[in-house]
């Protein structure tokens, strides 16, 4: 087993563990923190089912962003939808035998990769060219886009410039999954791609990428408009009430 295979195997394990634990911890803290007051942005749904529908529109269609800025919406949809297609397409490396729909998604995946890179380029241009957005951008905001562009770019390069031996790569991935390590093809573009993906997984729980889980915990979006009908009381507010006595 080459040093390279071992280092990448360890890197990918470490990245996955940091990603999973970090994300779980964040989600746990979000879930644990109470929302003491009813603050849905109105008009808001008056039923739980309505809230689910609102959240589906928000997460699936970026409804609020659409209201706000059409250009940002277009680039954001291109990037996120492209990323989703690519992730689905990449399932082929993890599954044996392949599920039916993973096979179906394969030809679209490549376009997903292109859309993703184009969308990211648009977002980057907007960040650079719109004075308001440039004003609020930190170095990390640019670096995040560059990292994602690097992932998309190196992925497309593996596909189009220096096609790697995907059969042995799949063997490597399955080897990681079943703790039966197989050699990793020594393709520089593939190695770059994997290193950048690992980096993304590692920074995810410590960065603004937390917007992905956070949106589900946003009280302005996930609360039902039923303040008059149901009394909403956070545990700490209930303790305060008991301590404060009755009127």
């Amino acid at each position: 087993m080459s040093i390279m295979t071992v280092s990448y195997a360890l890197l990918l394990y470490a990245a996955t563990v940091i990603f999973a634990l970090g994300l779980c911890y964040r989600v746990f803290t979000y879930a644990r923190t109470p929302a003491p007051l009813k603050i849905p942005t109105m008009p808001a749904p008056v039923t739980r089912a309505g809230v689910v529908f609102r959240m589906v529109r928000e997460v699936g269609l970026f409804e609020s962003l659409f209201k706000s800025s059409k250009w940002t919406w277009i680039f954001a949809v291109m990037f996120h939808l492209g990323l989703l297609l690519e992730v689905l397409r990449h399932l082929r490396y993890f599954i044996q035998p392949l599920w039916f729909w993973v096979v179906l998604v394969q030809p679209f995946g490549v376009y997903g990769g292109m859309a993703m890179v184009a969308g990211l380029a648009g977002l980057f241009a907007r960040r650079l060219l719109v004075a308001r957005v440039r004003y609020v951008s930190q170095p990390s905001d640019y670096l995040m886009l560059i990292l994602l562009l690097g992932i998309g770019g190196s992925g497309l390069a593996v596909k189009f410039l220096d096609h790697t031996d995907i059969v042995s790569f799949k063997a490597f991935v399955l080897g990681l999954l079943y703790f039966d390590w197989q050699p990793l093809p020594a393709n520089p573009l593939l190695l770059t791609h994997l290193a950048l993906v690992s980096l993304l997984l590692i920074v995810f729980p410590f960065s603004k990428l937390l917007h992905a889980p956070a949106v589900f915990f946003s009280p302005t979006r996930n609360q039902v408009d039923d303040a008059r009908e149901r009394r909403h009381l956070a545990p700490w507010a209930a303790r305060l009430e008991r301590a404060g006595g009755e009127v």
Binding site: P34, P36, R126, V133, V136, S137, Q138, V215
Partner: peptide, 16 residues
Amino acid sequence: KYESLRVYLDACVKCG
């Protein structure tokens, strides 16, 4: 004490 504060300080991506 406030889920809103915790989530909102983390979630912003500076999309503008």
